[in-house]
Design a protein around this nucleic acid. Structure first.
Lengths: 371, 371
DNA sequence: ATGAAAGCGCTAACAA
DNA sequence: TTGTTAGCGCTTTCAT
């Protein structure tokens, strides 16, 4: 044994040794929370193992002992050191959440749902905002969540095969929102049905020249949302005996600016629509603006239906398909938590949860005026 | 020494020992990344300490050795274990971000700014969404980020004295956005100046009966935003020789619904405004809707100015005060990172960064019609 | 129901 | 420039 000085307890809090034997507290009495398991054990006259068990609620501790330990831990302001606990147990109690754009309405909503769910189960939420293709590529190349999460949640990302492999390589449960890829569990809505309802609404109002403001052609295979919504559109056309006309379709990129562009394009073509279905509300907003700029009125000249029930849809009086957004976050979190609680990681048994949608009729749609 | 079996490397990945001596890889060749420092050390024929130094870029390693070590680590798909590193070093390389409502436009923007900044510096972002008073109280009572972050970022929270104390007790750097409390550093905009510009714009257009849609009366002391913006309003009135009239003020709670309510109240009073300044765009949106419902037109009957330059302001043609939102996130992150890089935690020297605002004139304001 | 002790995988003092 | 060796603060066998 050398006579070497032991290291200070924490690098940052080198303020000095605590005087006396009482719990170290701030001036106002709030516990500083940097005492250790062994401090508690010493005070309670038991081993650290027992304290650990007691505090984690394991059944092999007598109620009496537990009560005493809890009281002392409380008094000392003891909080378990996550790093130590993680290192020893191999579990991080952390979920990585990967989101394409944190600053878009949809993702804020979903995250608020899943955050609450994770938090109440004692899980930390590590946020990764990709914010575009560059960030996305770097993320999947580096995989910064290796060794730091027990599970991963991926929101609305059309995953490539390579990305799927990278995620699988993490060997932790993965949950998806808005995309379905084996073998990951996922939560989604029935996009086909939702879109059908929207378009059927227009058909029922007498419209035959119904434009489609779709996504981009560039969305990779695994991203089913735009494809499914488009399919709903096509199905209803077929069922109503209306022939699909590519003249009536334009891509809007799922942004407001894109929707505006798409509608402008449509207005510049030979066949004029009396109604339009936008695959998202934000595109619908853009389309409405394009119409206004062209001197056309909604719904007098053109009816518009969106999809999502964005916060602003109500304000802008947009008829749309509402979906439970926050609930998708809640649901996917629950899926993951169940799996984590169930114990060891199993890649098998993909679970798929599908949530309902509903048409909300507002003022942006009306019967087609007599031709 | 007992003949006890050593524990499996990780609790979750008990898949089995790797056959052969090559790096353990998935079928597709992606490294699984669960080798340890000593694996690398062994392969490189050096001590773990040297590997640790080499990989962290410490200057006390010869370039030659470092290159060899890096190559081997790469080949093995080695990634440092955060828990072990944290436990040993006392540094978590994690920043806790506390946000009142993740699902509001402003916070999504700010987070996207600061996330990028933190990420590029190798810091993890632990997200805490309070989501209302209940969550807030629970958060400050439990302080779930004790022992798990190197720094904390608090967005737009009017902190009570108690909350400030709890944060100080963490003994880590704290950064604020949109509120200024000693001794925390903060980033903000000049709300007084921004509001002044907005109201002055209305005055210059000839308006004298300018309503104010303010926040709630319930906002605690430390939250200066609504107070400052209101002050800007009052200052310009005074400077224009217009007397402040409580009849022309209503609280809108910083929500769309609140703004609608406020405008309805105003319209029900005896003195009718020809213009209104809303302390936020979302309230302005609500106000516009209330006007529309009352058969009044914007800007023909009433001019409206907002504050924030929300995504939708452009679409709704709202004159407003624009502020750099993403940049506030970037700036506050940088403040914190600088402090962290500077070494030991120092409570002293509060830094305050103030970002500029600018009036954006759109179609919701026009000269007062002849009386 | 409890205790003893061996790690978990690193970092940092100290020595060489 | 590199190696040796204590820890960091827990969890988890295994023994009692």
């Amino acid at each position: 044994m050398t006579g070497r000085k032991p290291r200070a307890r924490t690098a940052a809090a080198g303020a000095g040794a605590s005087p006396g034997v009482g719990p170290r507290t701030e001036q106002n009495g709030a516990p500083v929370g940097d005492s250790s398991l062994s401090d508690v054990a010493q005070r309670a006259g038991v081993s650290t193992a027992t304290v650990s068990r007691a505090l984690r609620g394991l059944p092999t501790v007598s109620e009496q002992t537990r009560a005493r330990i809890v009281a002392i831990a409380d008094e000392l302001g003891y909080v378990v050191s996550p790093s130590a606990s993680r290192l020893a147990s191999g579990r991080t109690h952390t979920v990585g959440v990967i989101v394409p754009y944190i600053d878009r309405w949809f993702f804020g909503q979903v995250i608020s749902g899943l955050e609450r769910e994770l938090r109440t189960q004692g899980y930390d939420l590590l946020l990764y905002n990709l914010g575009g293709d560059v960030g996305r590529d770097r993320f999947f190349a580096e995989m910064p969540l290796r060794r730091r999460v027990d599970a991963v949640l991926v929101l609305s990302l059309p995953l490539t095969d390579g990305e799927v492999e990278r995620l699988r390589a993490l060997r932790v449960p993965v949950g998806l929102v808005g995309a379905s890829v084996e073998p990951f569990s996922c939560v989604r809505i029935d996009d086909v049905a939702g879109a059908s309802t929207a378009v059927r609404h227009l058909v029922n109002l007498g419209h035959r020249d119904i434009a489609l403001i779709s996504g981009g052609a560039d969305a990779p295979m695994h991203f089913t949302t735009p494809l499914d919504r488009r399919r709903g559109y096509l199905e209803v056309l077929a069922e109503a005996g209306i022939e699909y006309d590519p003249e009536l379709e334009a891509a809007g990129d799922f942004t407001m600016a894109g929707g505006e562009r798409a509608m402008s394009q449509l207005l510049g073509r030979s066949r004029q629509p009396t109604a339009a279905f936008a695959l998202s509300d934000e595109m619908a907003f853009g389309a409405m603006r394009a119409l206004r700029k062209s001197g056309l009125r909604v719904p007098d000249d053109v009816s518009i239906v969106g999809f999502d029930d964005h916060d602003m849809a109500d304000l802008l009086d947009l008829t749309t398909v509402t979906q439970p957004v926050v609930e998708q976050g809640t649901a996917v979190a629950r899926l993951l938590l169940d799996r984590l609680a169930a114990g060891r990681y199993a890649e098998v048994s993909q679970e798929v949860v599908s949530l309902p949608t509903r048409l909300v009729v507002r003022g942006s749609t009306r019967p087609r005026s007599a031709p």
